[in-house]
Amino acid sequence: MRFSIYRFDPDKDDRPYMQDYDIVPEPADRMLLDALIRIKSVDDSLSLRRSCREGVCGSDGMNINGRNGLACITPLVGLREPVELRPLPGLPVIRDLIVDMTQFFRQYHSIKPYLINNDPPPETERLQSPADRAALDGLYECILCACCSTACPSFWWNPDKFVGPAGLLQAYRFLADSRDQATAERLDNLEDPYRLFRCHSIMNCVDACPKGLNPTGAIGKIKDMMVRRTV
């Protein structure tokens, strides 16, 4: 199989370039990550992040033939050759396929991704009805791989101001949580022409999400909450 991979080594290269690799996958090599590990055994200067190799840790997000996805859950079968691999778009490249996620996580932290509840903690857990718990389905599963935010043009143009789909999905995850008490503060924090309203519902995030989540829908629900409290 032929691969064409984005290479950049800050110690040697002035600018990035594409390098071709030809490898013969072993029968056990099912996913793109298996092939990348095989390439790395030939050329150990190739750098990429990976850990769990089963789509849970969210480290190996990359741009695969023009689409963002996780290498570990992208089957080799069906990939158009040469398989073009590039780092996630719009984030500064540290080396090869490794990007600097600082901006992404800064936006994630800005929405206070934790439960805010000022009641004294009970003896056991803070309980939820099954219906309240079900409201969090499709929200809590996010693995923060950044595939969605780096597929979003609004995040490309304003990564410092727009929270981005990943951050906004998590914002709604806490807005939708029956145990959270900071609804008003959270909505205040998001009521901003840049932070929330750069989303123009083009749904690239939904298209990219390797976990099949729907950030655009969650953003729409945040807007619903704002409309309900204002109108």
């Binding site: 990035p16 741009n63 689409r67 719009g90 490249v93 597929a151």
Partner: peptide, 12 residues
């Protein structure tokens, strides 16, 4: 020196 990949012709 940190480049950014954002070649709109290469992103589907």
């Amino acid at each position: 020196n940190r480049p950014t990949f954002l070649n709109l012709l290469k992103i589907r």
